[in-house]
Write a protein that binds this DNA or RNA. Structure first.
Length: 424
RNA sequence: GUGGGCGUAGCUCAGGUGGUUAGAGCGCCAGGUUGUGGCCCUGGAGGCCGGGGGUUCAAGUCCCCUCGUUCACCCCA
């Protein structure tokens, strides 16, 4: 590409969200906000970028998201910053900085950035809805958080959502397990898939997650973390599972569920949509991170949270033909063929009264203006021609049903539609 | 980071083995109806066929490069 003219385009892996799709986005956030409020969460906004150390320490340097997918940059003051690749670490950083009373329950909606190759359901900028609870390791919190996510998905009309759950143990029991797993893997090294035969030592737990038949075969004969949990973790996990069952939520125990970030302890879970054909069918996931606050320099504080991928959830809704959101239609659309002055005043008066009123511009023909009125989805057109202009009146024409046209004085016209505005 | 598919009008797409002024449907604009949308009819605007190079008398079509996009691996929401 040399002397070519520049045609601006959204960067690879990013997307513009425009009407009418953006109405659906608004509605999705509104649903989440509503449920989060019901569960006692308050909205938190954190910066879109943080000191890189927040992520390096928080997520662990070996996490791919950190090691090779972060958008890192230096600002003009020489600070090393990174666009956030996920939502938890920034909220934890804010918690440490402000020390709100616990349990601290926060929800957020924010973009995340990862330098990955875009593909179905995977973007360089995606948007997450999520919650975090800091300051309690009560298993009931785990249950509530998972139940909340479930409720959210159900409320969108999603049927084909699968919930898997596992426990990652804690500092007391996981190291011993990882050692046991390593020992086991080392004796079966040659039977692993090509990739893990080379790299299993970097992160033995990852091998559990591998879908290749070779690895599955090996690991299915190996030690299982759930069976080697310490007493506390084991009790905790059973309480979570019991609580979910009690609430009527079916969670599938998946001993292979190992999530990507270092900070997870105990409960981990993932929601996936079986309606999605693409490889990326995880629509939400999360877990407990009882060591994270301390890792980032705060007092020992347990925490748990989850994130939901908005783009993927909407794709899942598409696949299930659910959560179809229509944009709003004007209550009335003004057509004025006498120069537009009457439309200008009437539309302003209606909007002052809270009525969604629209009009045509550019002094087009009545036919053209009515065509725009029809397309706008408005129920009624308010027409002003020479006759109406002279008598200070407006003709109402129904656009969605058959009805006799009627001509009202401007005052009557305004009060008829103002009632609509007051109601909403 | 690795590998495959695809780039033609605002959108969805046609354009056998290269061959005149590049087409359709939808959308948009105007008219048919000098005060009336939707249905119908007529007309119109809108394309450096992603970009660059090459082969050829001749390239939307063939070859190379490049950019973009898409799908998969990896990883994740």
């Amino acid at each position: 590409m040399t002397e070519e003219q520049f045609i601006p385009q959204a960067p690879a892996g990013t997307h513009d969200v425009m009407p009418p799709e953006s109405f659906r986005w608004q509605a999705l956030v509104a649903r989440f906000a509503e449920i989060a409020t019901t569960y006692g969460f308050g909205l938190v906004h954190t910066p879109m970028f943080e000191d890189v150390r927040v992520f390096h320490r928080g997520l662990g340097d070996i996490a791919e998201v950190v090691s090779k997918e972060m958008y890192e940059f230096e600002d003009r003051g020489g600070r090393r910053l990174a666009l956030r690749p996920e939502g938890t670490a920034p909220v934890v950083r804010a918690f440490i900085q402000h020390r709100p009373p616990t349990p601290f329950k926060a929800w957020y909606v924010s973009p995340s950035f990862r330098y990955e190759r875009p593909q179905a359901g995977r973007f360089r900028q995606h948007h997450q809805l999520g919650v975090e609870v800091l300051g309690s390791d009560d298993a009931d919190i785990d249950v509530e958080v998972i139940a909340m996510a479930s409720r959210f998905f159900r409320g969108l009309g999603l049927q084909d959502v699968r919930l898997i759950i596992n426990s990652m143990g804690c500092e007391a029991c996981r190291p011993a397990y990882v050692t046991a797993l390593s020992d086991y893997l080392s004796t079966h090294q040659s039977s692993l898939c090509d990739e893990h035969a080379e790299r299993w030592e970097q992160n033995p737990l990852r091998v559990l997650d591998c879908k290749k038949e070779a690895c599955v075969l090996v690991t299915s004969g190996g030690p299982i973390l759930r069976e080697q949990l310490c007493q506390e973790c084991s009790v905790h996990h059973e309480r979570v599972r019991g609580g979910l069952t009690e609430l009527g939520l079916s969670a599938i125990q998946d001993d292979r569920l190992v999530r990507g970030f270092d900070y997870y302890t105990r409960t981990t879970f993932e929601f996936s949509s079986s309606a999605l054909e693409s490889a990326q069918n995880a629509i939400g996931g999360g877990g407990r991170y009882d060591g994270l606050v301390e890792i980032l320099g705060g007092p020992p504080t347990p925490g748990i949270g989850f994130g939901v991928g908005m783009e993927r959830v909407l794709l899942a809704c598409d696949a299930e033909n659910s959560f179809e959101v229509a944009g709003p239609n004007p209550a009335v659309f003004m057509v004025d063929v006498t120069g537009g002055g009457h439309a200008r005043r009437i539309v302003a008066a209606l909007r002052d009264r809270g009525v969604f009123a629209e009009r045509a511009y550019d002094g087009r023909s009545m036919k053209a203006q009515l065509k725009v009125a029809d397309r706008s989805g408005a129920d009624f057109a308010g027409i002003i021609g020479e006759q109406e202009a002279q008598t200070r009146s407006v003709t109402i024409r129904a656009l969605r049903h058959e009805a006799e046209q009627e001509t009202l004085s401007v005052e009557e016209f305004l009060s008829r539609f103002s009632a609509l505005g007051d109601r909403s």
